[in-house]
Amino acid sequence: MSHILDRAAWNALQTSHADIAEGGDLARRYPPSIVPFAAMRDQSPESWDALANLLSGEEVAAIVELGPLEIPPTLEVVREMQLVQMIAQGPYERISDPRIEPLTSADAEEMLDLANLTKPGPFTLGAQKLGTFWGIKVDGKLVAMGGQRLRQPGFAELSGLCTHPDFQGRGFGKLLFRFVAGEISARGDTVYLHAFSGNTTAISLYEALGFKLRATFNLRAVKRRAA
């Protein structure tokens, strides 16, 4: 029996994020200004065509699936990798810390700059439309952040966790990790996350913080092939 997180993007676009989804019954995506993830009902030719029709120009769709992805000739692969999905083994205690503050649209440019510097994964100016983000500022400068991305009934993805290189080693990342996980748990949702399969340092840290490996996924970023 399949799990709701086996197709995290598709199920999020059908439920918690249906209000911002673009597309229809065969293929859906997030607005590119928010995040590049897209998903299909299945890998039938009709579903692939529906996905291709959602893309224009140089727009890229990131597709994540458990099994192999048979990309049709109408699409071009621009990036491919493997992701691991990890899930919390239990709820996290809700904590507070005066250094942590909720981030707002006024922080969006600084959040994007921090993400571009540290590369925690796909991040845009519209990322806050997926869920709340929190950060730590030093002398008014954002130096660490973390928040929520994909959501399905009963589950929420912890994402965007990063710390400026000049401020690493101070425990900011671990603090924000526990804070965001606690906020998700307080809603009654189970926390999960994704990491690049080659990032063994991060995976070991997440395991030490109470997460276990759930599954490994294939990611393909695609765009329409030029005629």
Score class of each variant (00 low, 15 high):
136 I>K: 13
99 R>S: 12
100 I>F: 14
73 P>N: 10
179 F>P: 02
214 R>L: 07
31 P>R: 14
21 A>V: 07
217 F>V: 05
58 E>R: 11
8 A>M: 09
107 D>V: 04
45 P>T: 10
214 R>W: 00
29 R>H: 05
37 F>R: 08
118 T>L: 06
162 C>H: 13
27 A>F: 01
63 I>P: 12
89 Q>I: 02
57 G>H: 03
46 E>P: 04
2 S>T: 10
61 A>C: 07
218 N>R: 12
121 G>L: 09
30 Y>H: 12
227 A>K: 09
210 G>H: 03
191 V>I: 01
19 D>A: 13
226 A>F: 06
125 L>I: 14
49 D>S: 11
57 G>Q: 05
33 S>H: 13
129 K>T: 09
161 L>S: 04
114 L>P: 08
188 G>P: 10
98 P>N: 14
146 G>L: 03
96 S>I: 09
49 D>M: 02
24 G>L: 05
199 N>K: 06
226 A>K: 13
66 L>F: 00
38 A>V: 10
153 P>K: 01
133 F>D: 02
138 V>T: 10
205 L>P: 00
158 L>F: 11
70 E>R: 12
162 C>S: 07
25 D>V: 08
220 R>G: 00
56 S>H: 11
50 A>P: 08
89 Q>V: 02
169 G>Y: 04
153 P>T: 01
156 A>M: 14
203 I>S: 00
95 I>T: 15
208 A>T: 06
125 L>D: 10
192 Y>R: 07
89 Q>E: 14
7 R>M: 02
215 A>P: 00
109 E>C: 05
145 M>G: 06
124 T>H: 07
203 I>D: 04
136 I>A: 13
186 A>K: 13
173 G>P: 12
215 A>W: 04
127 A>W: 07
20 I>A: 11
118 T>E: 15
71 I>E: 04
201 T>R: 15
145 M>Q: 12
2 S>W: 03
155 F>S: 09
47 S>M: 04
217 F>W: 11
137 K>E: 08
139 D>S: 11
3 H>N: 15
40 M>S: 05
99 R>D: 06
1 M>G: 13
153 P>I: 00
119 K>M: 11
83 L>S: 05
11 N>K: 03
120 P>Y: 11
104 T>I: 00
